[in-house]
Design a protein around this nucleic acid. Sequence first.
DNA 1: TTCGCCGGATTGTTCAACGATCCAGCGATC
DNA 2: GATCGCTGGATCGTTGAACAATCCGGCGAA
Lengths: 210, 210
Amino acid sequence: MKVPSVAERVAEELRYQLAEGFLVPGAKLTEATIAEDLGVSRNTVREAFAELAGERLLLRQPNKGVFVATLEAGDIHDVYTVRRAIEVSSIRTGGSPERIGAVRAAVEEGKRAAAANDNEGLGSANQHFHGAIVALAESNRLNTIMAQILAEMRLYFHKATMNAHFYSDWLKENEQICSALEAGELERAGDLLLAYLNRSEQQQSAIHGE
Amino acid sequence: MKVPSVAERVAEELRYQLAEGFLVPGAKLTEATIAEDLGVSRNTVREAFAELAGERLLLRQPNKGVFVATLEAGDIHDVYTVRRAIEVSSIRTGGSPERIGAVRAAVEEGKRAAAANDNEGLGSANQHFHGAIVALAESNRLNTIMAQILAEMRLYFHKATMNAHFYSDWLKENEQICSALEAGELERAGDLLLAYLNRSEQQQSAIHGE
DNA sequence: TTCGCCGGATTGTTCAACGATCCAGCGATC
DNA sequence: GATCGCTGGATCGTTGAACAATCCGGCGAA
């Protein structure tokens, strides 16, 4: 029976287009255009913009317009700093068996995607994996923070910048991390995860502007 | 020369009133009333509401209105889970001498407030202390997350719930943490900070609903 | 007492308008 | 030929009014 508000649906549609890469970083979004395209009022678009700007997906420049967020110098390090903080902290809490099961499920999802040569599926499986790790901490706030970070990464590090062998390493590593977690070796799981995040940051830095 | 937008100023005014306790948790904010009080349009108020709702300071209930956020069951644990993740992680990065100096400055600020019996000052000094710790990591995103968490805590754990001896313990502890940080004993500093956060959570849980 | 309906109040959304601000282009000046 | 300043058009920021949808409290009927 619940019907999300129009503004919410507009935000959702924009989020989708951002994740799919239909809107590339730096692109300008004109209020009137979006309003007309989606058959909605300019004020409503405005509200959606405010929401997405709060999530750092859009950048609002007063009197100039809103633009799809672009990667500034230091942003990569910034994002990974947040991930190190919340992912490592979360995995070290251990988590309930159900939550650990969700992590395992994400690992298996990745294996299936790899077997099917589904590059797209590999990406989302990896995101599910890291989302499941944060979920171990049972904190709504951490979960939403992580969801925003993952949305940012989908935007910045889009399919174009992702090649297949990029994921292949992760699979083995995710498996190791998950095994350590299941075995209760929280210290080791945290160390493995931290090492992965550090290496991933290096790779991304090397690919992008550096 | 930069003039923040009207919506931004409205949001700022509401943030102030929330921090000062003029607006208590659970209170209803009627769009028309706020608009008239601040001499601003209803649409503008709406935009400010959206922003504050994104910061979890206000809760939006569709077709019912916006209310000052209230502490739900599990929220205390949730907030402290976030703090443990980002504060401990930040302090373990060490940080530049300038940033460490900022932490030291916050400690001294607390001492002065204690000497002057300035209860109000003690509270903000403590917030500066923890903000400075997060700033060690040099991450804009972590800083804004922490700022939001601190705003939430100002709202929930307001002066009324704070008594003087609540702070007195912290002073010595902050001093110890800061000393360990200055000495480069990052592990110990992190452990001390973690212990403090755990104890603080227990205290708050005991005071509130439990 | 409980149920259901009604009216007032508030929200969700749209629309039209106007001043403020920015930007590109163009001409004038050095 | 390059720089400066102006002008016009486009877009944003904000307002005010309007109307449907929804919620809430109260009142009457079963």
